[in-house]
Nucleic acid binder design. Sequence first.
DNA 1: ATTTTATATATGTACAAACATATAAACATA
DNA 2: TATGTTTATATGTTTGTACATATATAAAAT
Lengths: 243, 243
Amino acid sequence: MYFSIDHKSPLPLHVQAENLLRTIISDPQYANGKFLPNEVQLAKQLAISRSTLRHALNKLVYEGLLIRKKGVGTKVAEPTISSKSKNWLSFTQEMNARGITIKNFELHVTWVKPTEAVANFFGISTSKKILKLERLRGKTEGPFVYFISYFHPRVGLTGEEDFKRPLYDILEKDYMVIATLSKEEISAKAADKFIASKLEIESGSPILFRKRFVFDQGERPIEYNLGYYRADSFVYTVESRRE
Amino acid sequence: MYFSIDHKSPLPLHVQAENLLRTIISDPQYANGKFLPNEVQLAKQLAISRSTLRHALNKLVYEGLLIRKKGVGTKVAEPTISSKSKNWLSFTQEMNARGITIKNFELHVTWVKPTEAVANFFGISTSKKILKLERLRGKTEGPFVYFISYFHPRVGLTGEEDFKRPLYDILEKDYMVIATLSKEEISAKAADKFIASKLEIESGSPILFRKRFVFDQGERPIEYNLGYYRADSFVYTVESRRE
DNA sequence: ATTTTATATATGTACAAACATATAAACATA
DNA sequence: TATGTTTATATGTTTGTACATATATAAAAT
């Protein structure tokens, strides 16, 4: 199979190169920290200049998908499952970028009366039913996260949506709701029986628990999300800079 | 006042330009979304090429400090109320803000050969001894976190410092080392015997594990920190904003 | 008065070329 | 054996140049 870049495409060459590289490094052949061809060679192969290639590489390096080392080469980063708070990529997009295909093991949509905490967060009464979305997701080998989401009635979800599509895509394109602010609380806890059975681990095993509060542009609450992650397959990463 | 760039400095021009720009845009005169001079002009002023200047600008744009618009110009981003500054409080300050008085239960200073991971992060050999700081801290009722810190030799710590003072205070005031960037990995794990005994919990109990990589202004590694938190008394919070 | 068209301006894209510097491996030396 | 020294190789830095494209404004046409 041969890759090439279309010099006549309106899409900038460095973007094409970036996309191409994403495809290339997501290949299992490259997944395990294998080195790319050197820049001069790769530029020649793609028929672009080294500067343009570096433009593309820079982005992937910045995202943490590639690791460059002076005098050595550029290799594919180990595909750790992690979450960068800086990026507002959706869960699926983020995982895809790391060469992990997300499988949906379970997907339940129900209308329920909100708990005290949820009603309080949304500023609604506990008697009015709201949409609850439960999803068990993970890799082909098995699930590693159980999500529970509640949505504010204002959003207008019907429950008939195709939740296999990225959630933010649905909210933005179909409901014109743009998530802008997210507050998260991350903690560790022991898995109870229910979560343990879902994640296929033993009851009492440590799990990473993430509460996520999502707001729209007007800082109005739109989603209340609970995530239970298997401790052995999920790391949460945060990058912060002073000033 | 006039800025300039030293072409003889070993520090790359684009890094110098980046630092310079950081200073410039932090000036209140520039703080409120004011436009920078255009690239060609600014490059001339700084006596560097436009490409080099763009290299510097790119980084600041990526960090969200600058906003570029094709055909218009580059302006300083509005200062958002992010959690960045919040994340940069010291542990003690952070706890004080939550109304918790911190007690030091144990404090050990030793010189040790770094593990593979630490040596690799610092870019030093595993044979040279470095400073290791272990601290068991918590509330008056009992400890809830065990910290292990390693410091890069470059920092110049002697081990004789008064570690009851805030760490960042020591680094800044006594050693002129300013921590600027922090990358963290948060995960859950089961407490091993050692940690369990320190935190006064049962072995196998879930704990929150935080790896923290701290860099100075030149993005050089200065601290490698491991934190083991009792799950029942610690929650990690993150706030992130899109765009 | 309104719409269209030109134009100056600024960022965006792309290439070529040269030199600097870190790394690892091969080689030579004590 | 252990330690320097060279060398090939790969990324890092920097400049110069040219043209593309989006934007806002001013001028011209309707």
